[in-house]
Design a protein around this nucleic acid. Structure first.
Lengths: 204, 204, 204, 204
DNA sequence: AATGAATGAGCATTCATTCAT
DNA sequence: TATGAATGAATGCTCATTCAT
């Protein structure tokens, strides 16, 4: 994502420089962690003065929030569009897994912030849950429920639990990818996860 | 875990008061998060003077580490003992899931520290990985591999990936339990996870 | 005093908008105090852009100065005119007291700035003394001296001290009026002050 | 007042080091004004670390308050003791004037803080009024009233107004003394003030 | 071992002022 | 003249850590 990327008035009210700062913050947070990152670091990375940051964001905390909000809402918007034509629950879940992993796999810094900084406090986690994450989990749950109705999925598992297992498996893939010193592609892991999720680990 | 529980020099060198401080720290960290917690808070909670904390731990960071180390090594030690007689890979995984969820389900504060504070920085996460977590994942991986050798598990999935999926599913159960405002038992979720993990979500 | 009051180039070089800003600043300073007032507040109150303030004044400090200078020079000019025909020292002092209290009593915001903000630093106080205040005190002193020469005032008191006592008494009336939660007229207090100042508190 | 003056448990709870800091703050405030003074300046002047200041005072504002509170309560306590045996209202007022001027005349820094910093904001002034100043003015007022009852003072002046005039005259003496580049004794001014206050400026 | 007073480095945020338009 | 976005210096306060007792 180039630094001065033009912004296509996407939803919120942050201008081009706001985007710049957000991108810089993502980088800095990913590098040092939220608490160890200084606002001055973000400003320097963005090439603006310290004070300028506060023309676009209320506080350091607000920056972190904005990163979540933007990425999450974009992800969900895109996801919903991608899933539009897909009716088979198995295909839908597979597509979700692919999107999840390819999206985060394409932006390591964003992934780090999502997997790590976001979890750094129950406060942030709750806010995250309250925000987009709940909606995301609901989409998965509904798909599972739909699959059960269509007799495609077994019915002895509560949809919400199935959704959490699904999300948890994907999430762990991302976390491991981030922490791994080796460099590999995250997106292909979707296939592996789907094998187990749909078919189980047990031999047929 | 009673406050003044006698310690039988188990592994490390922390005395009775060290345990006291560790327990207090777990409580305080769970309550406010690592960064928002002050060493003075921990000292007050433990009923000792601020300076005393530094007779037992090198730094605030060292306290967090010690919490992980002790809990993790105890968990692994206990886990290995529990798994000793179990040879069937399916039963072994099931037992691991049960232990994982019942252990954390029995100590909410510890669970919060594990699920939340531990994730607060890549630094901590890497250290955690390097420490006990890698060993834990390896036990799971070996069990999967063993299952494949015994023809009990399908062979088209890489054991390490299967292990991560397994861990990720359990981990998500714990995280959700922590964040949930509702009060429910965590241990029984092991059954649900195993259903999906062993048999898959697809209808037979 | 209407906001856009036309200015007849009286003495200094501030234009109509300069007056506007000065009036806005008096209001804002009176409301929040000099240090707590932001230049942006003044600009907003005046209905101009932040930068515009600096087209008329060198600095925030200069604004405060200008408020003093204008009010003080106007007060002195007016005072001299009013006193022109009065020769009796007692009448002169009485007239000064009336002017002093009626002038400030008619403009509470200006009074607050004079009584409070002006005193906020020895720096401002010294500048104030050096500026118009010295001249004011001198007028009073000369009147006292004149009264002594005319045998109307006792001679065992140094004129400058008598002048300070006179000013101090009036000043305290203003300060109390400003701080009082009750609403009363300031001007009539001149009579009370003159009673004591001229005749003393002791019973005849 | 020597720096490490022993504290005789006088009223509040500030220890010896608290006194030290308060004295340093008085000096620094007198030198640069409240707003221009940095907490670090106070700490350096007191010979302690920045953080130490906060072991004794809640905030910079609290330091200013404490200076007022201590000085004012000490002054009033001492004043009441001094006035105990004096019944003649004229003598009482004279004694008050002497105490007022000799007290502040003996401690120029404290005087500066009282005359200048205290007036720097309506907020501080109101708090000051609410605190000891109101009590002080009341003592004066009661004395005037008593004098009127004893037929020693004229009755056509409201005691509260007479009290303000009295206080205002003294206050102006102090302010002028502080701002004066010349060095002279403040205490003797009490005589001059009393001449005018008791006998009036008019020739007999 | 235990204490807790003292330390001082560290940082988010504000706001007077500037200047390109 | 007028604008207002951008600047960046400045500072009160916190808190992990030390150490004399």
């Amino acid at each position: 994502m180039p630094k001065a990327q033009a912004v296509k008035t996407n939803g919120k009210k942050i201008g081009e420089k706001g985007e710049l700062i957000l991108r810089a913050a993502t980088l800095v947070f990913a590098r040092n962690g939220y608490f160890a990152s200084k606002v001055a670091d973000i400003a320097r990375e963005a090439g603006v003065a310290d004070g300028t940051v506060y023309l676009y964001f209320k506080s350091k905390d607000d920056i972190l929030h904005s990163i979540f909000d933007r990425a999450m809402s974009e992800f969900i918007r895109e996801g919903i569009r991608e899933l539009e034509g897909i009716t088979d629950p198995r295909s839908r879940l597979t597509r979700i897994a692919e999107l999840h992993l390819s999206k985060l796999g394409a932006d390591r810094e964003l992934a780090v912030v999502f997997q790590v900084e976001l979890r750094g406090s129950t406060k942030h986690m709750r806010e995250f849950s309250a925000a987009g994450f709940g909606e995301y989990l609901e989409i998965i749950r509904a798909t599972v429920e739909d699959g059960q109705a269509q007799q495609v999925f077994r019915k002895d598992i509560k949809p919400i639990v199935a959704a959490k297992i699904f999300y948890g498996a994907l999430d762990e893939m991302v976390t491991n990818w981030i922490l791994s010193p080796r460099s590999y592609h995250l997106a292909p892991m979707a296939t592996e996860v789907m094998k187990v999720y749909l078919g189980g680990i047990a031999a047929p």
